[in-house]
């Protein structure tokens, strides 16, 4: 049931016609999530709104650098406190232009997660209220988790 509700929410506001819609049921015991989906990078905030309305909480935002493919990926981990269900939402951007909308107006807790992803990978969160280094020094101009970082 909850699967269909989420699917409807995603179909209406996130996937639209151009994207390939898919929502994969995954084995929680093997992957650590019940559902996994990939959304276009410019619609991560729409996805966050669907998750927010479905009573999910945003647990973490993980950046990843896929240097061979020339892309960087963000993984949003959502959890529903009442059931313990987990949904993983993925979005990827080109390494040269790693910009995507912030979700911090929906989940204010994302503000720090996004600043961390900006520190480590150099993601640019459009509309972020305070895009300054969080964990790295205030004058840091390097991104240590990029795979081509030589420090």
């Amino acid at each position: 049931m909850w699967f269909d509700d989420l699917k409807d929410g995603f179909s209406e506001s996130v996937w639209q016609e151009d994207a390939a819609p898919y929502l994969v049921e995954t084995n929680h015991a093997a992957r650590g999530a019940d559902l996994e989906t990939t959304v276009p990078a410019e619609r991560v905030a729409d996805a966050a709104r669907v998750m927010y309305e479905a009573m999910f909480s945003l647990e973490a935002i993980t950046g990843m650098d896929w240097i061979v493919e020339g892309r960087m990926e963000l993984v949003y981990d959502y959890v529903q406190f009442s059931s313990g269900r987990r949904v993983t939402v993925r979005a990827s951007v080109p390494r040269e232009a790693p910009g995507l909308p912030t979700v911090s107006m929906i989940y204010p807790g994302a503000e720090w997660h996004e600043r961390e992803a900006r520190d480590f990978f150099g993601f640019i969160f459009i509309g972020h209220p305070d895009p300054t280094p969080l964990l790295l020094p205030e004058d840091a101009d390097f991104h240590p988790l990029r795979k081509d970082f030589t420090g």
Partner: peptide, 25 residues
């Protein structure tokens, strides 16, 4: 507020939400 910020543990349970990873997952 806990949900919006992703707070868990005793902070969340002290706000009346029964979520414990040992129990829920």
């Amino acid at each position: 507020t806990c949900r919006r910020y992703g707070a868990t543990g005793p902070v969340l349970r002290g706000s009346g939400v029964c979520y414990d990873v040992r129990r829920n997952e």
